[in-house]
Amino acid sequence: MDLLTLRSCTMRFGGLTAIADLSIGLAAGDLLGLIGPNGAGKTTIFNMITGIYRPSSGQVLFDGHSIVGLKPNQIADRGIARTFQNIRLFPSMTVYETVQAAYSKGVKYGLIHAVSRCGPFHTSEEETDRAIAELLEYFELETVRNEIAISLPYGQQRKVELLRALATKPKLLLLDEPAAGMNPSEKVALMGLIERVRSDFRVSILLIDHDMRVVMGICKRLVVLDYGVKIAEGSPREIQCDSKVIEAYLGEPTE
């Protein structure tokens, strides 16, 4: 059974149909690439999955259960985490605090313990601290742990956002153009990191990029979207030769 299934999903904004009758399946452990030209509807799919938009019609199943109509935080609780195309970090927080925020749901104590600092408070905080330190090391961010996250260089901000999503211990990670704004060598490094994250954290990934060369290397399967319609699906090799895909990308500026 698939971990995530979109069944005939349609998303309309007034007269505009951003997503039309789209079906996608993602098996546990997969790293699926979602590509398509600007405005194809990629981000809209993420917003439907994460409960920010409610599909006009169709079903979204996660782990076999419908998640349509749930609030974003409930969907996050089920095990879906995401990053944003235009990075959304918490502007007042340091890198460490940002990851802490992701842990704030998972602590083993409540409000009363937090304000009185008794009961399981200290053991839980120490546990969280160790876990965060490990994550920061994995992402090579320990040197900037006390920097305000949004003051970091762009590439590191993307990493912090990825780390924040991962810290919620998701089953499925949705990454919206994580390589945007990076130079080619940074992109290669990031793709390597994403692949490592997938196996080390045993998380399934749905990865958006509009530049298909970026994702070719790590995704075994790609879905190509154009004007809200799935125009192709298959291995990178199949996609590259697909006439519809070539047509959709014709005239696309190369970066």
């Binding site: 935080n73 996050a76 609780d77 985490a81 918490f90 919620t168």
Partner: peptide, 10 residues
């Protein structure tokens, strides 16, 4: 800081 981003981390 960011209500929507907060929601997406649960």
């Amino acid at each position: 800081d960011d209500e929507l981003a907060a929601e997406t981390i649960g």
